[in-house]
């Protein structure tokens, strides 16, 4: 919960933005609530209050305004429904469908903010992935598949569905250990060379090389 007066910016995006600009709102200043229920109540209440005020000053032939909420689809109610036993996992790359509606126990993802695991009932979130290993536990600790993803995004939905989109995803045994080691050395040398020159873009490209090959190296157990 935010303190009163904060969150004007957020209010502008919602239905009850008028509270922020009106001089004396009937219910006092209200902020975006942290719970969906409170927000729903606040929006509904402020909408009615707004329409009441609107009718007082608007000409009789003017239709009441529409609200942003009228056009946004209502989020599906997930509270109260039981969490399924398995996670529905979709794994897509541009040229292939790695897994489609696969029923899994656990997925471990390498996000830029740190590795995390997804099990059924995970909070909805979107995570940017860094180059690293995605571990899919079809059956916890029994049937495990490992993929290396170059980058990408993971979308975790409220209905225990998880989507993973990557540009390149390969199985770990498809990686050439020697190529990985020589690549890591090559990009380390390249990074040192371009750092001396001082071109930001080249440095970033070499830095990405080091990042990707370090991740590859640890993935193949080097």
């Amino acid at each position: 919960m935010r303190s009163p007066g904060e969150g004007f910016g957020a209010d502008l995006a919602s239905d009850h933005y008028w509270l922020a600009v009106s001089t004396s709102p009937p219910g006092g200043l209200r902020c975006i609530s942290t719970t969906a229920v409170r927000q729903e109540e606040a929006v509904k209440g402020s909408r009615e209050e707004f329409l009441e005020q609107f009718k007082k000053v608007a000409p009789s032939n003017l239709a009441p305004p529409r609200f942003i909420g009228d056009f946004v689809p209502k989020p599906a109610k997930v509270e109260g429904t039981a969490v399924p036993e398995k996670l529905t996992f979709n794994f897509y790359v541009p040229h292939d469908t790695v897994l489609n509606k696969s029923q899994v126990d656990l997925v471990l993802l390498p996000a830029v903010t740190g590795d995390f695991g997804v099990m059924p009932g995970h909070v909805p979130t979107v995570a940017q992935l860094r180059p690293g290993v995605v571990t899919v536990h079809k059956e916890l600790d029994k049937d495990v598949q490992k993929y290396f993803v170059s980058s990408g995004f993971a979308f975790i939905h409220a209905d225990s569905t998880t989507e993973l989109c990557a540009v390149e995803a390969v199985k770990l045994d498809e990686l050439d250990v020697d190529a990985v080691r020589s690549g890591l050395q090559e990009y380390n040398a390249k990074l040192a060379a371009v750092q001396a020159k001082g071109d930001d873009y080249e440095i970033a490209a070499a830095q990405i090389g080091v990042e990707v090959y370090s991740a590859l190296n640890s993935a193949v157990g080097g």
Partner: peptide
């Protein structure tokens, strides 16, 4: 960035 990463991963394949 993502295409560069993908290129590098492809370069390390068997």
């Amino acid at each position: 960035y993502s295409n560069l990463c993908a290129d590098m991963v492809r370069a390390a394949l068997k």
